[in-house]
Write a protein that binds this DNA or RNA. Structure first.
Lengths: 235, 235
DNA sequence: TGAACTATTCTTGTATACACAACATAGGTT
DNA sequence: AACCTATGTTGTGTATACAAGAATAGTTCA
């Protein structure tokens, strides 16, 4: 019965998720001005819940609110993205280290299951599916760390980096590389090799950040006239 | 001229800080119901900015909002606190590792300065002052990591753990121990010994978490009747 | 006497209205 | 002609009003 009645959730929360979705999927690219009235009309609600949603998004860094000047989607400078990937790598490494020491049999099963699901997506050559299952895989590691707070932090940052990570898997062979890295990570965790699990996860993630930065750098070199080299950094 | 006019900041932000202050200083202990009307009257404003402040605090985990049931100060279970200290330790360790590799001369000077200020407070036997300068010391390390995002994350978590850490320094000799650990940390960072800086900082922080947990456990044993052992965890 | 149901009240969630600051544009002055 | 200023417009920030769900207390029936 409880499943039928939708969980009583604040409208502003739902709106927050919707707006977040539009941001991470590129409907609202970085730099976009988020006009409260426009959003309110577009969602068919008043400004109040929109404001609350924006404030919540602002406090997790997904939008930027400047007093009396409204909300905008922040321009993620490549530098800052690097920093975020650097932190993400360390959080994942920590999850891996703890998971290797604390993982329970049931969680081992879940991890293997997620890994095998990834294998299926890889063989099918479906990057979108792989991307999705990849999240399940990583989440399994977060949970196995048996540190709920850490898992929350890792999940939050993972979400925030989602739009940038997504581009990755299109790169030639990235899916295959990712999968073989996963295999080694699973082995280390199941085998209880804490340090190895940590360092492999760190590399696994940091590589994505570096590759992304390379990608951005290449794109900018291609698209920008030479004298624009000093232009303010923007993705 | 610009310095004279106070920075135009949203009222809800100021309120958020005030409420946060009341939470971390124990004016609103865990479990407190935060009635919007009461808060509004107590601050002499309407409910709107109060709500916005609460939503912001909720999104960083400082209050808990249950739909249609209002906001409460979350009961930090000792387990969860342990988890948070575990993450804090790792963030600090990461800051230390990066700082050892990246610190600039000017930042070295700032770090030493902060360290010497702590020494003064220690000699004066002033835990409150030491506590305050200790924050400056750690902040200097965060900044020296040259990862702005990491520094933000570390600062945020540090703030959130503030009320629990504060109790620490009253413990016998803790100030002296803390200071000598600081000295070793400074040496490692200035000396560029990345791994040592990291592991020392990790220990430095994790010890606080453990000591705090011990303290909580002791207090609960003392104050709770034996049959209360199964009671829901609350600090 | 106790339990369950209903009605009342209180609090949250949303909408609307108003005030004020920031930006833009146009006009005047140097 | 260029720059400064004044005014109008747009949009954020706060207050108030209203609606709906949850808690509570009171009443009725078993």
């Amino acid at each position: 019965m409880q499943a039928l009645t939708p969980p009583p959730v604040r409208l502003s929360e739902q709106l927050g998720e919707s707006i977040e979705e539009r941001i991470v999927t590129g409907v609202y690219p970085p730099g976009t001005r988020l006009d409260e009235q426009e959003l309110a009309e577009s969602f068919g609600v008043s400004r109040t819940p929109i404001r609350e949603a924006l404030i919540q998004l602002a406090s997790i860094g997904l939008v930027e609110i400047r007093p009396r000047r409204g909300a905008t989607v922040p321009e993620m400078a490549p530098d800052r993205l690097c920093e975020m990937f650097e932190v993400m790598a360390e959080l994942e490494a920590m999850c891996g280290r703890l998971a290797a020491r604390r993982i329970l049999p049931a969680e081992q099963a879940r991890l293997l299951e997620a890994h095998q699901a990834c294998e299926a997506a890889r063989q099918a050559g479906d990057p979108d599916l792989y991307y999705q299952l990849n999240e399940v895989f990583h989440r399994a590691i977060y949970d196995a760390s048996h540190n709920g707070f850490l898992a929350e932090q890792a999940t939050a940052l993972h979400r925030r980096l989602r739009p940038f990570r997504r581009l990755q898997l299109r790169v030639r062979n990235r899916m295959n590389t990712s999968f073989s890295e996963h295999a080694a990570i699973v082995e280390a965790i199941i085998g209880g090799d804490s340090e190895k699990a940590g360092s492999m996860l760190r590399t696994h993630v940091i590589v994505q950040g570096e590759r992304f930065t390379d990608l951005v750098a290449t794109l900018r070199q291609m698209h920008n006239p030479p004298e624009a080299e000093l232009a303010p950094a923007a993705v």
